[in-house]
Amino acid sequence: MKVGLFVPCYIDQFYPQVAVATLQLLEKQGCEVVFPLNQTCCGQPMANSGFANLAKGCDRNFVENFDGVDYIVGPSGSCVLHLKEHLHDGNNEAKATYIRQHVYELVEFLVDVLKVEKLPSSFPHKVGLHISCHGQRGLHLSSMSELVAPPFSKPEKLLSMVKGLQLSKPARMDECCGFGGTFCVFEEAVSVKMGKDRVGEHAANGVEYITGADTSCLMHLEGILKRQGSTVKTIHIAEILNS
């Protein structure tokens, strides 16, 4: 199975350790992983700001880079959802369609495609789980509190395989953290207030780490935690599963 590793731009630039963990995790599961070096971004920052038409160059570049792999896997629910919903390339629509249908967020790939049942990982810490909206409501990584439907959680399933990990869930289990792409700067006040409230609930639960499947949410929460001088740290779920 040939997997194209999709590393979202801000992870490449600011959180390389998340990409390293993702790569190693997939390799340990027996995947042949390639990292197309000329990839940049999924185009979401433009599209979510109303500039989907400006993302065409990005889309073209993405399709060129990820042609020829079986699956495309990335450690970011939000970017993956954007690709699934919006990736098109007028000159290569068949390839774009293949990518839309075979692009996976890491957690769903591990659970749904690789059907991982056990992991050798160990992370003896109290960890709060932050559910990202796009991963949950978009990719259905877990059940949603608004719906009358049976409960399930793919990230929890994976975290339950990690030795020593003590999972803590906030009462508002799927409340948005307020990152929201460019929302985080154009609606700075609300964005930060939402983030502070999320952080507050986890801190009150006495967690050492906040984890999740979306680095963008974690980057936002980390920024707030650091400004508060908090001892709570953020860590991507790939880093825990690879530990």
């Binding site: 909206c133 796009h134 409501r137 792409g181 154009f186 609606e187």
Partner: peptide, 13 residues
């Protein structure tokens, strides 16, 4: 339309 994180909870309720 920009006063939203597009979290999707509205559509669910």
């Amino acid at each position: 339309p920009f006063a939203s994180t597009l979290c999707g909870s509205c559509s669910n309720v």
